[in-house]
């Protein structure tokens, strides 16, 4: 059996998933099945619940109700085969190389193998020249690249990306998207959030549209952008503000 199959944790099934905080229901009965293969972009305006959904899937938050099931061959230890990059990743107070090495050491990899993997990751993300620089003094774009390298280093089967290019300039955004593309081509399933329509068009194979904690539409990317089924998804694509609780204020 190949390594990929041995480590496969997908599909990921979420069923009637809800999450509550501060007496408010922030994720409302979300059901979806993430299969192996395509890149999924979770799209929606700020406050839609995209990041919360990623954190729930990644196991950082516990749902109020509903089920999260990893159904693949390696589903008994899904945490080992997934990683996440945050909108504002935390850089440990050590060098760039040591940040990647830290993630690998947590997976129990021996020193020699770690060294080889760190060098490969630095090369793949274009960070080799910064290997011995302190991670915290890097630019935000470089830090985000390092966060991707650190996550990629552990060879995750699924990589959750929470708005990885928010507040980056176009050049840095493209550099990050190149790395995401490389990770995808290396066989890692990408599930990312964004509210950037252009980025969603560039990256997505499948789009989940969320608004106010609900999953309103899930479709292949082409179909979603050409013929969105949901009225609010259509409004979002057309750049209208989603003031759906107060229809009278909606821009015409």
């Amino acid at each position: 059996m190949s390594e990929a199959l041995q480590n496969e944790i997908l599909p990921l099934e979420i069923e009637e998933l809800t999450f509550e905080a501060g007496g408010k229901r922030l994720i409302k009965e979300v059901t979806h099945k993430f299969r192996a293969g395509p890149r999924t972009v979770i799209l929606g305006p700020n406050g839609a619940g995209k990041s919360l959904l990623l954190r729930l899937c990644h196991g950082l938050l516990k749902p109020a109700s509903g089920k999260i099931r990893w159904c693949g061959a390696a589903a008994d230890d899904p945490a080992r085969h997934q990683a996440m990059v945050f909108q504002r990743p935390v850089m440990l107070r050590r060098t760039v190389a040591a940040n990647i090495d830290y993630a690998l050491s947590l997976r129990g990899m021996d020193r020699d193998a770690r060294k080889v993997r760190v060098e490969k990751m630095l090369e793949s993300t274009g960070l080799s020249r910064l290997a011995n620089s302190p991670a915290r003094v890097l630019s935000f774009g470089e830090q985000q690249k390092l966060a991707l390298a650190r996550a990629w280093a552990v060879k995750p089967r699924v990589l959750f990306l929470d708005e990885p290019t928010a507040s980056l300039d176009p050049a840095a955004t493209h550099a990050i998207e190149d790395v995401i593309d490389a990770i995808h081509k290396a066989g890692t399933r990408i599930i990312m959030t964004t509210h950037d329509l252009g980025q969603a068009r560039r990256i997505a194979d499948e789009v989940l549209f969320m608004h106010r904690g609900r999953l309103l539409e899930s479709s292949p990317a082409d179909a979603f952008f050409e013929r969105p089924e949901d009225e609010q998804a259509r409004a979002f694509i057309h750049g209208e503000l989603l003031w759906w609780d107060q229809p009278e204020t909606r821009l015409q």
Binding site: L60, P89, V90, Y102
Partner: peptide, 18 residues
Amino acid sequence: YDEQLRSLGAGPLRCMAT
């Protein structure tokens, strides 16, 4: 550090040391 360390898979003792 909370979410980042938990996401990387650090256990309680490793979190403390880090």
